[in-house]
């Protein structure tokens, strides 16, 4: 729980133990079924020897971000600023991946929903690409965790560098990433994906194990809507995911594009069918 504590930090052990005990009690304590909105208590405890710096160090180490500290007599501004910064940090963390700082899956899905409805409203293309680092489990097995992190960060940096300002890049989780490209159809998104795959091949990622630099390749699945036919986030995701699966099956380090759903749907009812044409040419209704 509290590894590598320096001797002068030992007195704080007692405080941490106390907080920990309180947490457990509060978690199991019986609460009213429907608490009134203005119900709630601030639980206080005076620590005469604790300063802001020590408290911040404790917060970082012990995940005490939801605990507040206020001085009794000194200027409260540094403490309030600290709280403000924590709030900002929590907001950022709720929408971003802490390692790569890209959008996280939840934030990305929100953007995708909005972009899909915009695409359908104005009849504009939208492309979704899902990337996966090939054989990431081998990197994990052969290297320190920090090396795997370097690989993830490098791929994230690559996506950020290649995307346009209004594209969205995200880490979906694990070694999976995504790009959302508004107003881009299949042809142009394929060019971009090819460029990203080529750039990934030439990445040279530093290795903390003292070995040679790590090299990676990416597989990608591409799905595109022309905005003509309403689709859902789930459907577009499933199309891109399926294409990614095929790219991996076909040998990795490549991309596969799903057929454009708008163009493979049922024919327009205005279509002049073959039997109608035949009739106009020959006067016969049967071929």
């Amino acid at each position: 729980m509290t590894p590598d504590l320096a001797p002068h930090e030992a007195p704080q052990e007692a405080m941490l133990a106390e907080l920990d005990a309180l947490r457990r009690i509060l978690a199991t304590a019986q609460k009213p079924d429907a608490p009134a909105n203005d119900d709630g208590l601030v639980v206080m405890r005076l620590y005469p020897e604790l300063g802001l710096d020590e408290w911040e160090a404790l917060c970082r180490r012990q995940d005490l971000r939801d605990w507040l500290a206020l001085p009794l007599s000194a200027n409260p501004l540094p403490f309030l600023t600290r709280i403000q910064a924590t709030l900002r940090e929590l907001t950022f963390l709720s929408e971003h991946d802490p390692l790569t700082k890209l959008d996280n899956r939840e934030a990305f899905e929100r953007v995708l929903t909005a972009e899909l409805s915009r695409s359908a409203r104005i009849g504009q293309s939208l492309a979704l690409v899902i990337f996966e680092i090939d054989d990431f489990n081998l990197i994990n097995a052969d290297h320190k965790p920090s090396c795997s992190d370097h690989a993830l960060e490098s791929v994230a940096a690559l996506l950020l560098a290649e995307k346009r300002t209004f594209d969205h890049a995200a880490r979906l989780g694990g070694e999976k990433f995504a790009l959302l490209l508004p107003s881009v159809g299949l042809v142009r998104s394929q060019l971009l994906v090819e460029r990203i795959l080529a750039a990934a091949r030439s990445l040279s990622i530093s290795c903390d194990c003292g070995n040679a630099p790590i090299h990676v390749t990416l597989s990608a699945g591409l799905a595109c809507t022309k905005g003509k036919m309403a689709t859902t986030r789930e459907k577009l995701f499933a199309l891109a995911d399926d294409s990614l699966r095929r790219a991996k099956e076909e040998g990795k380090d490549r991309f596969v594009a799903a057929p454009i759903a708008d163009l493979t749907g049922p024919p327009e009812k205005t279509l002049v069918r073959a039997d109608e044409k035949r009739f106009l040419f020959t006067g016969l209704t049967k071929g």
Binding site: K269, T270, V272, E276, K277, L280, F281
Partner: peptide, 15 residues
Amino acid sequence: SLTDSYAVIKVLHTQ
């Protein structure tokens, strides 16, 4: 000409 005008008729009729 017949198929093209039929196409116009069909589009105007269905849309």
